[in-house]
Write a protein that binds this DNA or RNA. Structure first.
Length: 579
RNA sequence: GCGCCGGUAGCUCAAUGGAUAGAGCAACAGCCUUCUAAGCUGUAGGUUACAGGUUCGAGUCCUGUUCGGCGCACCA
């Protein structure tokens, strides 16, 4: 039994004995005091119960601690107005240090989601359109969510769903048809640039030109029917161009997909569920379209098949559900990592899927509605061809890092280092803030490498790596060759803070994975780095004469480097040994 | 009109209903004669948008106001 559970059980028993008051263990909450001087754990139970027990919080707290029978030298104290604070013996933390060194990169994992199959759908860029800063937030967040779930022992299915049919394509093809194949660009960058321009041209024409609008609608129809070989060919070509570029980006951000779905694949599968939905009166006709009237569920009205008889995005979602079920059967949870602007869409399609296929979908769907990305300066619009491209951002970060390290002789692979650190800087800037908060992206700030930044953490890791490299055999440094109980007496302030902070990692990972908030990990790692750097400044490791202290510090450095690396890994960020 | 999200230091963000609201950046002042200065130490910076309420205790919960973002039938 861990310390936390022991304390809770004891409080529960004491309340029963002393006050004849029954309370569930889960209702007793132990908190981490913000101020570490208040101890390692804190309980507010005495204040909570003042009314019910009709006694002052202090009185209750005093009675509780009188009766507590805790094992293992836990210090208990009372603070105004009635907090009960627990201070754990140093031994717990030195023992945990041994645990980290033993478990290595598995430290922090748990088995909360063992046996669960979770499908995470993320990225979804649309072919023919650009992969912009919004997609970057999506894929970086999605990748981290996948890794966090895997750390909880879930069996994760990574999928991507991409819109390769619909009006946005038709707008593009309308402009695409005017390009002479002789003028087709050669490089992937030029190709995607052209596609972006074509979309902007088509979208503008659609809005401003009556004739163009009719033509685009006709192209859209032909995309669905596949009756026009010329259009089919252009469609294939543009899609290939797009996907080539998308895969380049996936690779750069260390993402892979087990299955990439396309809207075009769903088209043949839509009729059946639509029929079924009509029979069950889930969908109804209205003004020539087939709609779901969500009002009775407090939801919006949304169109599943338009009055032209073409399925909308909503309709295709039903086809996708059929396809997924066919390929993967029932999964425990479907996570859709899609920005908050689609909240209404998911609320409705979730409800329809649940009504159609309760066994497969009821209580098995979650829309991770993360917030929008915008620019701190200026506005973005793909319609106007004015977008910040994902790749450009990564390139700029890469270049900036390249400049910084170009004169550092000790770094071997400068290009690779610049890439890893550059990508890390961008990922960090996205993940360090809550996903559920609007992100005002500022390129200058995200490539600022000081303080709360990816490179700062990576740099801290490299410092640790450097000590371990020069400390000789890493394996040996990884062994704690000292008497843990005795050594705690001699800890410096920095050592103690670092040691204690390392022990929190597993609970941070668990909370982050439960709430889909990688920023918890970022905050933790930043504080870990600060504590390590402070330790680094004031506690010499390699030149320490006393062998016992030297070994302890090497162990501490090793453990810190393991946790830094693992934490960054959960965020989808790589480390370098030298930078 | 209805719904969802947000407003915390000059800027970007933290803060499971808890103890003195914390960081980073920017500004200012220090530290390279110890393992990487992408580092460390310090100073300054706050009516937590506003007004009520609930609570032993509110940045956090409730109500209203206000400002901003997003969404609400044939786009995805």
């Amino acid at each position: 039994m861990d310390v936390k559970t022991q304390i809770k059980n004891q409080i529960q028993e004491t309340l029963k004995e002393k006050f004849d008051y029954e309370i569930g263990v889960d209702e007793i909450r132990l908190e981490r005091p913000q101020n570490e001087e208040h101890g390692d754990w804190s309980s507010n139970i005495a204040m909570q119960l003042t009314k019910e027990l009709k006694k002052s919080p202090k009185e209750i707290a005093e009675k509780i601690i009188e009766e507590l029978d805790l094992e293992g030298e836990i210090e208990v104290s009372i603070a105004e107005p009635g907090f009960i604070n627990f201070k754990l013996p140093g031994r717990i933390y030195t023992e945990n240090l041994g645990k980290i060194l033993e478990e290595k990169e598995l430290y922090g994992n748990n088995t909360r989601l063992s046996g669960k199959r979770i499908m995470v759908e993320f990225a979804h860029p649309n072919p023919f359109k650009s992969f912009h800063i919004g997609h970057l937030r999506n894929i970086i967040l999605g990748e981290s969510i996948v890794r966090m779930l895997e750390s909880q022992n879930a069996d994760v299915i990574r999928v991507n769903y991409q819109g390769d049919v619909g009006m946005h394509i038709a707008k593009n093809l309308w402009a695409f048809m005017d390009i002479d194949p002789k003028d087709y660009p050669k490089t992937a960058d030029e190709k995607t640039k052209l596609l972006g321009e074509l979309y902007a041209k088509g979208a503008t024409a659609f809005e401003e030109d009556e004739k163009a609008r009719a033509e685009i609608k006709e192209i859209n129809r032909k995309i669905y029917t596949k009756e026009d070989p010329g259009i089919n060919q252009l469609w294939e070509l543009g899609k290939t161009w797009s996907l080539e570029k998308f895969h380049e980006i996936y690779e750069r951000v260390y993402t892979t997909f087990e299955r990439e779905y396309f809207e075009s694949e769903t088209l043949d599968l839509i009729d059946k569920p639509i029929e079924k939905a009509k029979e069950k009166r889930i969908l109804k006709e209205s003004d020539g379209a087939l709609i779901f009237n969500g009002e009775e569920y407090g939801l919006d009205i949304r169109v599943f098949v338009n009055s032209q008889g073409l399925p909308t995005y909503e309709g295709k979602e039903l086809g996708l559900a059929v396809l997924k079920n066919r390929e993967y059967g029932i999964v425990d949870l479907h996570i859709h990592n899609v920005a908050v602007e689609q909240k209404s869409f998911f609320a409705v399609t979730f409800k329809v899927k649940e009504l159609l296929w309760p066994e497969e979908f009821k209580n098995r769907q979650y829309h991770n509605a993360y917030e929008f990305v915008g620019l701190k300066k200026g506005k973005m619009s793909s319609r106007k061809g004015n977008v910040v491209l994902g790749n450009d951002i990564l390139n700029i970060a890469h270049e900036r890092i390249g400049e910084i390290i170009k004169d550092r002789e000790e770094i071997d692979g400068k290009e690779e280092t610049a890439e890893i650190v550059g990508v890390g800087a961008i990922k960090w800037s996205f993940l360090k803030i809550s996903p559920f908060k609007y992100l005002a992206f500022d390129l200058e700030e995200s490539v600022n490498f000081e303080g709360d930044s990816g490179p700062y953490i990576q740099y801290t890791y490299a410092r640790a790596a450097s000590i371990l490299r020069e400390g000789g055999n890493n394996e040996k440094a990884g062994k704690v060759e000292f008497d843990a109980a005795k050594y705690t007496q001699k800890l410096s302030a920095e050592e103690e803070k670092l040691l204690k902070w390392l022990e929190r990692f597993p609970e941070v990972v668990e909370a982050a994975s439960k709430e889909y908030m990688p920023n918890y990990i970022a905050t933790y790692l930043f504080e870990l780095s600060q504590k390590f750097n402070s330790f680094y400044k004031n506690n010499i490791v390699l030149k320490e004469n006393e062998k016992e202290i030297r070994n302890f510090r090497l162990a501490l450095v090793k453990a810190t480097s393991l946790v830094l690396k693992r934490g960054l890994d959960l965020m989808g960020i790589k480390t370098v040994e030298k930078m």
